[in-house]
Amino acid sequence: MKFLIYINMIVISCLAMFPNVVKAEEILLLNLQYKSDKTTTREIQFYGNDIDPNSTSIDDSFSLKIDGKSIEVPEPLYRRLETLRRTFSYDSLSGGIQEPSESIARCNLGGPAEGMILKARYLTYNSEWKIVDHEMRSVFGMAENCLFKELYTPVNSNAREDARGVIEILNTLTLLGYSDSK
Rank of each mutant, 00 (worst) to 15 (best):
Y122A: 07
L123S: 05
T124A: 09
T124C: 04
Y125Q: 01
Y125W: 05
N126W: 05
N126Q: 04
N126S: 05
N126H: 07
N126M: 00
S127M: 13
S127L: 14
S127R: 14
S127N: 12
E128P: 01
W129M: 02
W129Q: 03
K130C: 06
K130V: 07
K130I: 08
I131E: 01
I131N: 04
I131W: 05
I131G: 07
V132H: 02
V132C: 00
V132W: 00
V132R: 06
D133N: 11
D133F: 10
D133T: 05
D133S: 12
E135R: 10
E135Q: 12
M136G: 10
M136N: 07
R137Y: 14
R137G: 09
V139S: 02
F140M: 12
F140I: 12
F140A: 11
G141Q: 01
G141W: 01
G141H: 01
M142Y: 12
A143K: 09
E144W: 01
N145Q: 07
N145K: 05
C146A: 03
C146Q: 03
L147S: 02
F148L: 08
F148G: 00
K149P: 05
E150P: 00
E150F: 08
E150M: 15
E150S: 11
E150R: 15
L151R: 12
L151Y: 10
L151M: 07
L151T: 09
Y152W: 13
Y152N: 10
Y152H: 12
Y152E: 11
T153K: 14
T153N: 13
V155A: 08
V155H: 02
N156C: 05
N156D: 13
S157V: 08
S157P: 06
S157M: 11
N158K: 13
N158W: 15
R160N: 05
R160Q: 15
R160E: 07
R160H: 03
E161L: 15
E161N: 15
E161W: 14
D162Y: 11
A163T: 06
R164A: 14
R164I: 14
R164P: 00
R164E: 10
G165D: 09
G165P: 03
G165L: 09
V166S: 15
E168S: 14
E168P: 04
E168D: 11
E168T: 10
I169D: 08
I169C: 05
I169K: 04
I169F: 00
L170S: 02
N171D: 15
N171Y: 15
T172D: 12
T172M: 09
T172N: 14
T172R: 12
L173C: 04
L173M: 06
L175W: 06
L176Q: 13
L176I: 09
L176G: 02
L176Y: 15
L176K: 12
G177W: 01
G177I: 04
